[in-house]
Amino acid sequence: MTTRLNVNINDETAEALRQLADRRQTTVTEIVRRAVSVYKFIEDEVVDGNKTLKLVTQEGQETSVSLVG
């Protein structure tokens, strides 16, 4: 099932969505779907009590990101 959603965003956000869509060669709609999925993942981690995510660069360098709840 698909739900149509209309949202109001500022010009800066609209441009960021267009740039991401161009970079990934996809649609703005798909970028919004992906963004919501990432946000839900982070929110679920915070709710589960997890406080840190580890990011690893292509070179193998690690950095941590603190999650704020």
Rank of each mutant, 00 (worst) to 15 (best):
M1L: 10
M1P: 08
M1N: 07
T2V: 14
T2W: 09
T2D: 13
T3G: 12
T3I: 13
T3R: 09
T3W: 12
R4K: 14
R4Q: 15
L5V: 15
L5S: 02
N6W: 06
V7M: 02
V7F: 03
N8T: 11
N8F: 10
N8W: 08
I9E: 00
I9W: 03
I9A: 04
I9V: 15
N10M: 03
N10K: 01
N10T: 04
D11W: 01
D11K: 01
D11L: 04
D11P: 07
E12N: 01
E12K: 02
E12H: 01
T13R: 00
A14S: 11
A14R: 02
A14I: 09
E15K: 00
E15I: 02
A16P: 02
A16C: 07
A16G: 05
A16V: 00
A16F: 03
A16S: 08
L17H: 01
L17A: 00
L17S: 00
R18N: 09
R18A: 09
R18F: 06
R18K: 15
Q19T: 04
Q19L: 08
Q19P: 11
L20Q: 02
L20M: 08
A21S: 01
A21R: 03
D22W: 08
R23D: 04
R24C: 04
R24L: 06
R24T: 02
R24H: 09
Q25E: 14
Q25P: 07
T26R: 02
T26W: 00
T27A: 05
V28T: 03
V28M: 03
T29W: 03
T29M: 01
E30C: 05
E30W: 05
I31F: 00
I31H: 01
I31P: 00
V32I: 06
R33F: 05
R34H: 14
A35G: 01
A35D: 01
V36F: 02
V36M: 02
V36G: 02
V36Y: 01
S37C: 11
S37F: 10
V38M: 12
V38D: 06
V38N: 07
V38W: 04
Y39L: 12
Y39H: 10
K40F: 15
K40P: 12
I42M: 09
I42C: 11
E43C: 10
E43G: 11
D44K: 05
D44N: 10
D44L: 11
E45A: 12
V47H: 12
V47Y: 07
V47R: 09
V47I: 14
V47N: 13
D48G: 14
D48Q: 10
D48V: 13
G49V: 11
G49N: 05
G49M: 12
N50D: 13
N50L: 15
K51C: 12
T52S: 10
T52I: 13
T52E: 13
T52Y: 13
L53F: 08
L53M: 09
K54A: 15
L55K: 05
L55C: 07
V56S: 12
T57D: 15
T57S: 13
T57Q: 10
Q58R: 11
E59R: 11
G60K: 03
G60R: 04
G60D: 09
Q61P: 06
Q61R: 08
Q61C: 09
E62S: 07
E62C: 08
E62R: 05
T63W: 14
T63R: 15
S64C: 13
V65G: 07
V65R: 04
V65N: 04
L67T: 08
L67A: 06
V68L: 13
G69K: 05
G69E: 11
G69L: 04
G69V: 05
G69T: 03
G69I: 09
